[in-house]
C-alpha cells in the first residue's frame, strides 16, 4: 500500500470499527502498526485528535471538563445536554484556581465559563 492515507481516513476507519463493536485495543494496534510501517509515528498526537473528532461527529464525544469543585451527576447531565451528543464521556479535572464555573473542551469546540476567565477579561479591559 503505497498511497498515504489521510488522518481523517484512519480516524473514520477507527470510529466505524469501534462503533460496530470491535475491540478498541485491537483496532488501535492495527493503526499503530500502519503508522510504524509508513513512518508516521510522529503524527500520533494529531491522529489521536482526528480519532476524537471522528468519534464526536458520530455522536460519541469525549469531553474534558475542568471545574473548581467536583461535578455531581445533575451537573454532568446538564453538561451532556449542552454538548448535545448521543454519548458523552467525561474526562474530569478539578482545578481550584478556576474559582468557579466550568471549562468544557470537546474535540472541535470549547466553552470557557469560568470565573477566572471573566476576571482575566475584566483585568484586560481595565475597567
Amino acid at each position: 500500500m503505497n498511497q498515504k492515507l489521510s488522518r481523517r481516513k484512519i480516524a473514520d476507519y477507527f470510529a466505524e470499527k469501534v462503533l460496530a463493536g470491535d475491540n478498541v485495543a485491537g483496532v488501535l494496534k492495527e493503526i499503530a502498526a500502519y503508522l510504524i510501517d509508513s513512518g508516521r509515528t510522529r503524527e500520533i498526537e494529531l491522529v489521536v485528535r482526528a480519532l476524537e473528532d471522528s468519534l464526536s461527529s458520530r455522536g460519541t464525544v469525549v469531553a474534558s471538563v475542568a471545574s473548581a469543585r467536583p461535578l455531581d451527576e445533575t451537573m454532568k447531565f446538564e453538561l451532556a445536554t449542552l454538548i448535545g451528543a448521543k454519548t458523552v464521556l467525561f474526562r474530569e479535572t478539578v482545578d481550584p484556581e478556576l474559582i468557579g464555573g466550568v471549562l468544557i473542551e470537546t474535540p472541535q469546540q470549547t466553552l470557557d465559563a469560568t470565573i477566572k476567565r471573566k476576571l482575566t477579561a475584566l483585568h484586560g479591559a481595565k475597567i
Partner: peptide
C-alpha cells in the same frame, strides 16, 4: 463591559 463578559452558553468551534 459586563455584557461583553457574559458567556453565551454555547460551545464555540475551536482548532489548535
Amino acid at each position: 463591559a459586563i455584557s461583553q463578559l457574559e458567556v453565551s452558553g454555547k460551545l464555540e468551534s475551536v482548532g489548535v
